[in-house]
Nucleic acid binder design. Structure first.
Length: 265
DNA sequence: GTTCTCGGCCG
DNA sequence: CGGCCGAGAAC
C-alpha cells in the first residue's frame, strides 16, 4: 500500500543519488508530500539550501527544482516573453549575466564530464574535427563580458588586474576592462597561442577582417622580462590560493559539524 | 541517541 | 499556496 517510500534514482542525476517522495498520511497536512535526496554516501537532504551548502560552489543550483528533481531551464517562466525585451532595455547599464561563454551549462545540477569526441570511421560528424573544435562564435562577443568582475563571497569586488602597456584593444569597445576579459577568456578557452589580431586590416575594419579565434586585441610582443615578471605573479597567486583553500577547508569542516548538530539539537 | 513525521512560519 | 526547518513522536 505505502509504496511511495521508495528511493528512486533520478534521471539527470549521477548514479548513486537517490530521490524519495513521502506522502503525509495523517494530520492537517495529510496528502501533502515531502521530497528528500540521498547522497551516494547515504546522507539525507531535505531542502535545496541544505543541498546547496553541501555541494558548495562546485555546482550552480540556480535553476534546479528540488521537488521534481529536474533542471528548469526557464525558471523565469512568466518572463518568457519579456526576456527578449529585458535584454534590449533593462540590460542597459547592467551586465548580461546570461552569457553562456565562460561557464559550461550542463543538463544536470552536477558537474558532468565533457563528452569526448573520438574518431569513428563510420561517423561523419564525429570525424569532422573542425566541427568538434570550432563552434560558431558571435562577432565581438567579448562585449558581453563588460561589467563582469571577480568578487569575493562578500560581493566585494576584487582588485582588477593591470595590463601590460603593450596591449591595445581593438573593436567597438576599447576599454581596458573588456580587453582584460577578452584576453583571459581567450587564454582560458583556446589551446592554441594567443597572438591578438595580426593583420593590420583588422584594425581598420574589424567587422570584416577580425580573426574570430583571437581576442579583440592588437598583436603584441612578449619579452623575456614580461615572462619573468609573470612567473613571479603566478607564484604569488599560488600562495594566495593555497591560503584560501586552507580557509575553505576549515570552513567546510565546521559547517558539516554544524550540520550534525542540526539533528542533535 | 537517531530517524520519522507533521506543524507552522514566512515569503 | 509551497519550501523549509523546528520539534515532538517514534524507534
Amino acid at each position: 500500500m505505502v509504496m511511495e517510500k521508495k528511493r528512486m534514482d533520478c534521471p539527470s542525476l549521477p548514479p548513486g543519488w537517490k530521490k524519495e517522495e513521502v506522502i503525509r498520511k495523517s494530520g492537517l497536512s495529510a496528502g501533502k508530500s515531502d521530497v528528500y535526496y540521498y547522497s551516494p554516501k547515504g546522507k539525507k537532504f531535505r531542502s535545496k539550501p541544505q543541498l546547496s551548502r553541501y555541494l558548495g560552489n562546485t555546482v550552480d543550483l540556480g535553476c534546479f527544482d528540488f521537488r521534481t528533481g529536474k533542471m528548469m531551464p526557464g525558471k523565469m517562466q512568466k518572463n518568457k516573453q519579456r526576456l527578449r525585451n529585458e535584454n534590449l532595455t533593462i540590460n542597459k547599464g547592467k551586465p548580461d549575466l546570461n552569457t553562456g561563454l565562460p561557464i559550461r551549462q550542463t543538463a544536470s545540477i552536477f558537474k558532468q564530464p565533457v563528452t569526448k569526441v573520438v574518431n569513428h570511421p563510420s561517423n561523419k560528424v564525429k570525424t569532422d574535427l573542425q566541427r568538434a573544435t570550432e563552434q560558431p562564435r558571435q562577432l565581438f562577443w567579448e562585449k558581453r563580458l563588460k561589467g563582469l568582475s571577480a568578487s569575493d563571497i562578500t560581493e566585494e569586488v576584487l582588485r582588477s588586474m593591470e595590463l601590460p602597456k603593450g596591449l591595445t584593444s581593438l573593436g567597438p569597445d576599447t576599454s581596458d576592462e573588456t580587453l582584460l576579459s577578452a584576453i583571459s577568456s581567450a587564454l582560458h578557452m583556446s589551446s592554441s597561442p594567443i597572438t591578438g589580431q595580426t593583420t593590420s586590416a583588422a584594425e581598420k575594419n574589424p567587422a570584416i577582417w577580425l580573426n574570430t579565434s583571437q581576442p579583440l586585441c592588437k598583436a603584441f610582443i612578449v619579452t623575456d622580462q614580461d615572462i619573468r615578471e609573470q612567473e613571479q605573479k603566478v607564484i604569488q597567486a599560488r600562495r594566495c590560493l593555497e591560503d584560501a583553500l586552507m580557509v575553505d577547508r576549515m570552513a567546510r569542516a565546521s559547517e558539516s559539524s554544524r550540520d550534525s548538530e542540526d539533528k542533535a539539537a
